[in-house]
Design a binder for these strands. Sequence first.
DNA 1: CCCTTGGAGTTGACGCGTCAACTCTAGGAG
DNA 2: CTCCTAGAGTTGACGCGTCAACTCCAAGGG
Lengths: 151, 151
Amino acid sequence: MSEPRTLQAEQWELWNDWMQAHRLLVRELDRDLQRAHGISKAEFSVLVTLHRTPGGRLRVGELAESLDWEKSRVAHLLTRMESRELVARTDSGSSGRRIGIELTAKGRATVASALLDHADNIRRHFFDQLTPEQTEAVAAWSRQTVRTLAR
Amino acid sequence: MSEPRTLQAEQWELWNDWMQAHRLLVRELDRDLQRAHGISKAEFSVLVTLHRTPGGRLRVGELAESLDWEKSRVAHLLTRMESRELVARTDSGSSGRRIGIELTAKGRATVASALLDHADNIRRHFFDQLTPEQTEAVAAWSRQTVRTLAR
DNA sequence: CCCTTGGAGTTGACGCGTCAACTCTAGGAG
DNA sequence: CTCCTAGAGTTGACGCGTCAACTCCAAGGG
């Protein structure tokens, strides 16, 4: 009885609910961040990462590594962020090669004002909705899944 | 003690793990579906919905309602699917107005071949990784979140 | 000293999902 | 009969995320 078979009706329902819930949650958080601070959730992650880096400068690869994202995703995002002056690609290589990413003043101001706000939204919409047991279940599943599927 | 404050380090970590896990899971399922059947997860949902509809024909609004998606999302998706002949917008209104969506032969063949396969992938990558308690936790959270954030 | 190889970063194309603006039509109110 | 309004559906613009292809430079071998 291990050959593939379709899911039970209630499994399909759970699966759809779960996808839906995730989508709605992300949409909510993104809307809030966009309205209040003009940035997306992804941009927030980049700003925070740079913000808490000693020295405040990272290479694209380090940023990608630190966020566990693909480099091209980071590169595209940085392009958009650079054009809005949240971030600067600084020339610091010997031969004028663009080698480091750092926050601009605007980027620093944005992350400072968004941090508490976004954290609070995550708490309200996510953590506050979970019982301690549910939190543990989510944590265990997440760790397991990341370990299994990473890279 | 209810004013906003930032999350604890382990909460941030859980949050990031959770986002990451979801992204990896979706990517995995999408890749499998794409490689094996040439469709995306979203397209699969549309195909299945049409497939199990008595009469096999729905209006855009009914499709959107049934999936709990926004109409414009459905419209965009249908445009892409129509161009690949998975689906047809049929003229059946009195005045030649395009009024119904239905599967093409190719659409029917695709959903038939993808159903078991995709269900099995969901089982392997999702349900098989959850203990019964974790499944219950996920189910409860999903229902709760959908209820809170829906429309 | 040249050449090649590999790693870092970028780019373009594409599909997904959202938002706002638009078209079209059917069904009343007058 | 005419207008006009509400709803259905579509479209365009945009940001996200992925994939594959590309550029460019640095380092090491010959």
